[in-house]
């Protein structure tokens, strides 16, 4: 029994192009995240960070290599089972938050019910989480009535409300000021400290510095870790 939550080995992804050969977005990525890990991936635009997140998040089938989340290969599952697996195991946080504009804060958090997540006690659980993230006074508010920091916190609550233990964050602080970015990074770190794992891609050196582990990415490859302590 291993406590590795995410294991990636020899991961490859190519994008076909109309002119010329395919673009190699990921070249033999190997990576392991254990419970408690908070890893920041840095790299220039187009280096394959988002592609890696999508492959890890069971959204984009890789062309080679393997992804195991909690010991299960999501790409060995059928489409429907993979969606259910994603709902249960992975939470996403996006740079643009992706909150549904016509739903209240509480309803946005409870969207996981549509994905077949547990319905009993979901509202109670959602309220508790929102209180923990200091959003209990915003339950009935729509996203447009929140500050950007609050919006990103709601997105984070939505990511964990379904019970996911692995959070994949794509430039989560990209639209936040330093103060709100700091709050969000604290909460991601707290999530990891509670037994989850966070894989964050970012341009922001300050955000990267808040993570427990850091790696760089260049041309689809993981390069020498910056202050690499634990990540593979």
């Amino acid at each position: 029994m291993t406590d590795a939550l995410l294991q990636i080995s020899a991961l490859e992804k190519r994008y076909p192009t109309k002119w010329g050969g395919p673009v190699l977005a990921l070249c033999g990525i190997d990576l392991t995240l254990r419970r408690g890990d908070f890893l920041a991936l840095r790299g220039p635009s187009g280096c394959g960070k988002t592609t890696l997140l999508h492959c890890v998040g069971a959204l984009l089938r890789p062309d080679g290599g393997k992804v195991l989340i909690d010991g299960i290969d999501p790409y060995a599952l059928g489409s429907s089972a993979r969606s259910a697996f994603r709902a249960a195991k992975v939470g996403f946080v996006f740079q643009n938050f992706h909150l549904v504009p016509y739903l209240s804060v509480l309803d946005n958090v409870m969207l996981c019910a549509l994905a077949g997540g547990p319905r009993s006690h979901l509202e109670t659980q959602a309220r508790d989480l929102l209180e923990k993230f200091r959003l209990s006074h915003r339950l009935r508010h729509r996203p447009s009535e929140l500050s950007v920091g609050e919006q990103q916190r709601v997105a984070l609550v939505r990511a964990v409300a379904g019970g996911a233990k692995l959070i994949l964050a794509d430039e989560p602080t990209g639209n936040l000021d330093a103060e709100n970015g700091g709050i969000l990074l604290d909460q991601l770190a707290a999530f990891a400290a509670d037994g989850g794992a966070v894989l964050m891609v970012t341009h922001d050196p300050a955000a990267s510095d808040r993570a427990g582990h850091r790696r760089n990415m260049q041309d689809g490859r993981l390069t020498a870790a910056t202050n690499d302590s634990d990540a593979n």
């Binding site: 959204l59 259910a84 709902a87 939470g91 549509l114 077949g116």
Partner: peptide
């Protein structure tokens, strides 16, 4: 479109 992407990403089934 972004909403559809979100729904599918968080595990909402296509049939739903």
């Amino acid at each position: 479109t972004p909403e559809i992407g979100l729904f599918l990403a968080i595990g909402v089934q296509s049939r739903t």
